[in-house]
């Protein structure tokens, strides 16, 4: 049975969670909503979709993969020994109040980083100790299109709890037993029957408010079609304004390309994993000077083809959650919805 909590008790709930877990919640900063480590004095907001996706909690922008140390042998200065230490994150985390499109992003990471190929031990360790509290999205923005890519603004598979706001009350549905443990508290009550009906109606109308900018067929058909338009001149036309800034990859809940680089301090140091972006020309630049994706249209084509074709072929999953951030933030006004819709009409 769902439970409910009134708005004035949310802060108490968050404070309690933050005593047991590292808690991430959205904070309002200079008009922007940012997912941040929770600090009671900074408060929280549930008003807007956070500007950055939640991926950074489980796949940090920069993280240590290993530590190394070279040591000279004092008896034989010619000899240098090397020691290596792997780093595995262990941290119980709760990500609180994120929209279903960001939960879909985390589900996506799970497919790619712990699927049929090599597993990523850093993501896996973080994900296995993470609880997710989703917030149903009742007023999707004009850039939102989650229903067109198999998502829902108001349901959130992969989350542990789902909150739905009705006036000053939040109805809380436990999706997993782990999620239920988070609400076994005196702060929660039982929602009235009529509130549950209102929740159902609110969810229906949220779904209805979303328009589909394109219609995808089955995933394999989509993958095939996107491969067929690889040579389309539209890629070049549509990306003329792109300035290769990479913001679309930065704010995207599914973009996961990364770089590995060593940072030395004297004889010791760390190997870091940092977010990278396939939109940067240096991303594929080889030491010989050869670059297989030198032109920006080639890089953009790779990005969208990866999301709408290659990932389906390799991981049976679509690489887009319909959050619309790339449309909202693109300084050149590139709208991937229009590009996908245009390309799908070519085949």
């Amino acid at each position: 049975m769902p439970k409910s909590i009134t708005q004035d008790k949310l802060a108490d709930w968050l404070n309690r969670i933050s005593q047991k877990y590292q808690l991430w919640a959205s904070q309002e900063r200079e008009g922007i909503s940012l997912l941040s480590p929770y600090q009671p004095e900074a408060g929280f907001t549930l008003e807007r979709i956070p500007q950055l996706s939640a991926k950074g909690v489980l796949f940090p922008q920069s993280e240590c993969m290993l530590k190394y140390c070279y040591k000279k042998d004092p008896d034989n200065p010619e000899q240098t020994d090397l020691s290596l230490e792997g780093v595995e994150p262990h941290l119980k985390t709760v990500i609180w109040g994120i929209p279903p499109c960001d939960v879909a992003g985390i589900n996506f990471f799970k497919h790619v980083f712990t699927g049929s190929g090599y597993h990523d031990p850093y993501f896996k360790a973080r994900h296995s100790e993470c609880l997710i509290v989703a917030l149903a999205c009742q007023q999707p923005e004009t850039t939102c299109f989650c229903t067109a890519v198999g998502g829902s603004p108001v349901e959130s598979p992969g989350a542990d709890l789902l909150l739905t706001r009705i006036d000053h009350e939040y109805v809380v549905e436990a999706i997993t037993p782990k999620g239920a443990e988070l609400i076994d508290e005196d702060l929660f009550g039982m929602p009235e029957e009529k509130i549950l009906k209102v929740v159902e109606q609110a969810k229906k109308s949220a779904c209805k408010s979303l328009e589909a900018p394109f219609k995808l067929e089955s995933l394999p058909v989509t993958a095939d079609k996107m491969l067929k338009v690889f040579e389309s001149p539209h890629w070049k036309e549509a990306t003329r304004a792109c300035i290769s800034c990479g913001i679309c990859t930065f704010i995207c809940p599914t973009c996961y390309c990364f770089n590995m680089a060593d940072e030395a301090q004297g004889m010791c140091g760390e190997r870091l994993r940092c977010w990278d972006a396939c939109m940067f020309p240096g991303y594929t630049l080889e030491a010989s000077g050869h670059n297989p994706r030198l032109a920006k249209f080639q890089r953009y084509r790779n990005r969208l083809s990866h999301k709408f074709s290659y990932l389906i072929t390799n991981n049976q999953v679509l690489g887009c959650t319909g959050c619309g951030r790339c449309i909202k933030e693109c300084p050149a006004g590139i709208d991937m919805r229009r590009i996908i819709a245009h390309l799908l009409k070519e085949v």
Binding site: Y118, F258, Y310, T313
Partner: peptide, 24 residues
């Protein structure tokens, strides 16, 4: 083939030709 590689595990993204990764 050669491609710029990082992870060698098919995860970091850069060495693909279409859906195939040169590294794996």
């Amino acid at each position: 083939l050669e491609r710029r590689m990082k992870c060698g595990l098919g995860l970091c993204g850069r060495c693909n030709i279409g859906p195939k990764y040169v590294c794996i």
